[in-house]
């Protein structure tokens, strides 16, 4: 019976997603709405990556926008120079960021908590500095202009509406992959490191290797998000990747829920939409954001999805939960 149920769930969920994603195009045609939806998707991908590193593996990164930047700039520069297709540019942006994530992870390996936080801030600051000062390559603070849009054959994705149909499925794919990863042996190792690195090591988990893996995968996600972003706006400025963006990603993570891949989408959607809604009170935007974050940390430290799941006593390895709860009942009988 459980098997049946989970099988049905596996079918229902994707259909639900497709249905939800098909809704906006039916009701709206404004570029503004689609631009916002696409922004939600980029942030969701980046936050899902940050979630793997922070939410699952417990390694703090406060400069995550730097990976977003690397993906964006590498993809944009490659596209300008070599006119590569999108299905190469997106992974290349991801891989470039992943390489940087690997190096950053290797450099920060022995650091914990506040020291790791400081190191990641430092590296992110350095990244921003490189973007601003290497202006022959990145356009510096004048911005990198004329980045080609993605195109499928001769069909150019030059409006947010068209981009939506590439970005959203890709976001779903990335979320799906993240979920596959965290519900496996690798995900268990990540979580074990978060919970207790000493005990994890005593059970054969090479904490160094798995932390590096988490850094790399996490950065890859940031890079993919960055690449998508670069080719949808067509222009890149260092401002797009500053400290505020890193903080924004962190807020999305905390509000959505650490240790929940689906939380990434909730956090990204709420904050992106909130940002748009608060445009009218621009000067007070950051005050509102700050207060919201403090409120979440105080009253809902596990984030929205984390809190919802806690009420259902739902833990990672949910399929395990179903099975075991059932077997547990059998055992009691």
């Amino acid at each position: 019976m459980t098997k049946n149920l989970s099988w049905r769930n596996n079918l229902i969920v994707p259909f639900l997603w497709v249905f939800l994603l098909a809704l906006p195009p039916l009701f709206h045609s404004s570029s503004y709405i689609f631009h916002t939806l696409n922004m939600i998707a980029y942030f969701t991908i980046a936050v899902a990556g940050l979630n793997i590193l922070m939410g699952y593996t417990g390694q703090i990164s406060i400069g995550h926008a730097v990976f977003y930047a690397v993906g964006a700039y590498v993809s944009a520069i490659l596209a300008r120079k070599f006119a590569l297709p999108f299905w190469l540019l997106i992974p290349l942006g991801g891989v470039a960021a992943a390489l940087m994530g690997f190096c950053m992870g290797a450099a920060c390996l022995r650091l914990k908590e506040i020291y790791l936080a400081m190191a990641t801030i430092g590296l992110a600051g350095a990244g921003e500095g490189v973007i601003i000062n290497w202006d022959t390559m990145t356009g510096g603070s004048m911005g990198l202009l004329g980045i080609p849009y993605f195109s499928v054959g001769s069909f150019v994705l030059d409006t947010p509406q068209k981009q939506y149909f590439l970005v959203m499925p890709l976001m779903l794919l990335m979320l799906f992959l993240a979920r596959q990863l965290v519900t496996s042996r690798v995900g268990r190792a990540f979580m074990a490191i978060r919970e207790d690195p000493v005990a994890a090591a005593c059970y054969g988990i090479d904490t160094t290797a798995f932390k590096l893996l988490a850094f790399t995968v996490s950065a890859f996600y940031g890079g993919v998000a960055g690449s998508l972003f670069a080719h949808s706006t067509g222009i890149l400025f260092p401002d797009h990747f500053g400290m505020e963006v890193s903080i924004l990603l962190l807020m999305m993570l905390v509000i959505g829920g650490r240790g929940s891949i689906m939380g990434s989408i909730v956090g990204a959607a709420l904050l992106t939409a909130g940002f748009e809604l608060l445009r009218s009170v621009k000067d007070y935007q950051m005050i509102v954001y700050g207060m919201v974050l403090v409120a979440f940390i105080l009253f809902m430290p596990q984030g929205i999805v984390g809190t919802l799941l806690a009420h259902r006593k739902h833990l990672p390895f949910c399929s395990v939960k179903d099975e075991c709860a059932l077997k547990g009942e059998e055992a009691k009988r």
Partner: peptide, 22 residues
Amino acid sequence: RLFAHMSVMANVMVGGHNHTKA
């Protein structure tokens, strides 16, 4: 030193880390 925020099941499964390869 348990993995406090993981399920009881997942804790035991981490114990089998060495005997799995994925």
